[in-house]
Computed example of a mutant assay.
Amino acid sequence: MNVAMIASHYPHAAYREEFVERVRKVAEVFRGMPGCLSAECWLSEDAVVSIVRWESDEAFAASLAALGTADVDVAFDEREARPREIVRLAAA
């Protein structure tokens, strides 16, 4: 069963472009992992949004575990105006 994750990041305006680059780098790492079907960066008026799809729960879990050792910045800190919103989805 395919699974997906939508993560909305709300950076302060001064950090918006930096967040776009951060999300693109994380998407690139995800795309290189087994079982990742797609990883993209989208923009809304106030958010930088990542949408990632995997072929299974196992691939999803392995990707998240591997992300911890990748050379990417995923820290939540003062650059964000409010907490991230992360939604995990499963294919119907």
Rank of each mutant, 00 (worst) to 15 (best):
Val20Lys: 09
Ala66Lys: 07
Phe60Leu: 02
Val26Phe: 12
Ile6His: 05
Ser44Pro: 03
Gly32Pro: 12
Glu55Ile: 08
Arg31Ser: 12
Ala27Tyr: 02
Ala7Gly: 05
Ala4Asp: 01
Ser50Ile: 04
Ala65Val: 02
Glu45Cys: 05
Trp54Ala: 04
Glu45Thr: 12
Trp42Cys: 14
Glu45Asn: 12
Pro34Arg: 14
Lys25Trp: 11
Trp54Leu: 05
Gly32Tyr: 06
Glu28Ile: 10
Leu37Glu: 06
Gly35Ala: 04
His9Cys: 04
Tyr15Ser: 12
Val48Ala: 04
Tyr10Asp: 10
Ala27Cys: 10
Ala65Gly: 02
Arg16Gly: 07
Leu37His: 01
Asp57Tyr: 03
Ala65Asn: 04
Val48Gly: 06
Tyr10Phe: 13
Ala66Thr: 03
Ala62Val: 01
Ile6Phe: 08
Ala13Leu: 07
Arg24Pro: 02
Ala27Ser: 10
Ala39Cys: 05
Ala47Arg: 10
Arg31Pro: 05
Cys36Tyr: 02
Glu45Gln: 11
Arg24Met: 09
Glu18Asp: 14
Arg31Met: 08
Cys36Glu: 06
Leu64Gly: 03
Ile51Val: 15
Ser38Cys: 11
Ala14Ile: 08
Ala47Pro: 08
Leu37Met: 07
Val49Cys: 05
Ala59Gly: 02
Ala7Trp: 00
Ala61Lys: 05
Cys36Lys: 02
Phe19Ile: 05
Ala7Phe: 00
Val23Gln: 07
His9Arg: 08
Glu55Gln: 08
Val26Trp: 12
Val23Lys: 08
Val29Thr: 10
Leu43Asp: 08
Glu17Gly: 13
Val52Gln: 03
Lys25Thr: 14
Leu37Phe: 03
Ala4His: 00
Ile51His: 14
Glu58Thr: 05
Ser56Lys: 00
Ala66Trp: 04
Ala61Phe: 04
Ser63Gln: 00
Glu55Asp: 13
Ser63Met: 00
Met33Ser: 14
Pro34Trp: 12
Ser44His: 02
Ala13Thr: 10
Tyr10Leu: 10
Leu37Thr: 03
Ala39Thr: 04
Glu17Gln: 15
Ala7Tyr: 01
Val20Met: 12
Ile6Arg: 10
Glu17Ala: 15
Val20Arg: 11
Asp46Arg: 15
